[in-house]
Design a protein around this nucleic acid. Structure first.
Lengths: 220, 220
DNA sequence: CAATGTATGTTGAATATTCAACAAAAAGGA
DNA sequence: TCCTTTTTGTTGAATATTCAACATACATTG
């Protein structure tokens, strides 16, 4: 059996698991070790989102870069921390964020799908319950990500457009209803309600959207 | 055996688990059903954070109310969704947010600590691995919450002070180092770097903080 | 230690937001 | 339907932010 790196045994994710257990998990998850130089981008937005990363040494930052090039640091993972788990365990296909290593780092990547293998008995539903919970927490985490993606814009207009385009994408249509009234939407976007109303009116006059109350339509 | 409500069997958390399995989980988690009237506050900020809620019918909203009375809707959970799991599975003692039911709702509350009972074998580390992952995802979710708590403030000054007071609390001291340089802090707070520097200077001149680079001290 | 590059601080003009107050429209009840 | 309440839209003044440009301080390396 291969030697298990000390850092891995000490990681929170694998703590309390026997060497045999860890070896089995690493094997079925096709574990692969990455060496990252300072400043290197470990994972680029758009790449497949099916793996969890365990930081063995160093640090990685989770970064969202918008089309204008503005960076927003969504989080960081130091030695022993993991990243990518929300995306790997939800049904997201590709990374909406990038992972960069601001210092030299060592990272172990695990394929998330490898986990479900060999867990048949589901004794008393305890494993299934946990898998359900993990999936739910993953997608909830993503919804936080979405909120941050929206609220991290600097202007009411940008926040509103970001929110509406996400809603349209989720609805699969340029025409959709939102689950908020004006005040709730303003609370969600973290902006002033009257300013939000004004901005909606402006977008409407500019022909960019059509709307009535909670019903919206985005024109191209 | 008690009848398992249909909504519970259909909930994502308990899907794919046999009736016996569900009954066992409900029993060991001291499941209790709540009936909530429209507008009712289900859980108030400050209450113990040791239970997961499953929404059987209706909707609940997760709300943070700051000292000035401004509301920020952090999320919502509809029928079949769960809430409170991040707090229940992290080591947070009390709820930092409130849960309100804007419509009539039925909710099943489960005690999170009940889960760990009767799962001794830890076959191949698979259960332990999942419990580790759940704990990690829970605390990561909380860090998103913290970022939102900070970035949802409307002014640079408020964001900065909210961030610094959280850092001070985490450090357990009024004096501490932050893990960001100015540009990174500005990215995290979602504000302009020069405006951030200006605000730090102003707080310094007003005697509210002392600081040098990444080292800060909050004066009362 | 000097030179260079990077990080931080400062400023003023342009722009955007918030706030308060009110108008208009829609919803709900009697 | 009429009246009341709630929601949404509109406006202008006060305030805050962003942006760009530059000054200063700090760090690094040769």
């Amino acid at each position: 059996m291969k030697i298990i790196p000390e850092e891995l045994k000490n990681s929170e994710l694998l703590s309390g698991i026997s060497e045999e257990g860890i070896a089995g998990i690493l094997d079925s998850c096709e574990a692969r070790k990455l060496i990252c130089a300072s400043g290197e981008t470990v994972i680029r937005a758009g790449e497949p989102a099916d793996r969890i990363g365990i930081v063995l040494s160093g640090v990685v930052q989770i970064v969202r870069t918008d089309i204008s090039g503005n960076n927003s640091i969504l989080g960081r993972a130091g030695a022993g921390d993991i990243f990518g788990e929300s995306l790997a365990f939800s049904d997201e296909a590709s990374m909406p964020v990038s992972v960069v290593s601001p210092v030299d780092s060592e990272i172990m990547m695990l394929r998330a799908s490898g986990l479900s293998r060999g867990t048949d008995p589901y004794a008393g539903g305890m494993i299934r319950f946990r898998d359900n919970l993990i999936r739910i927490m993953a997608s909830k985490n993503l919804s936080f990500n979405r909120k941050i993606e929206v609220t991290s814009r600097r202007t009411t207009r940008e926040k509103l457009l970001a929110y509406l385009s996400i809603q349209a994408r989720d609805a699969g249509s340029r025409e959709f209803d939102i689950p908020f009234d004006r005040q709730q939407l303003a609370d969600y976007l973290e902006v002033d309600r009257s300013g939000l109303s004004a901005e909606i009116g402006k977008l409407r006059r500019q022909g960019i959207i059509e709307s009535s109350r909670s019903h919206f339509k985005i024109n191209v």
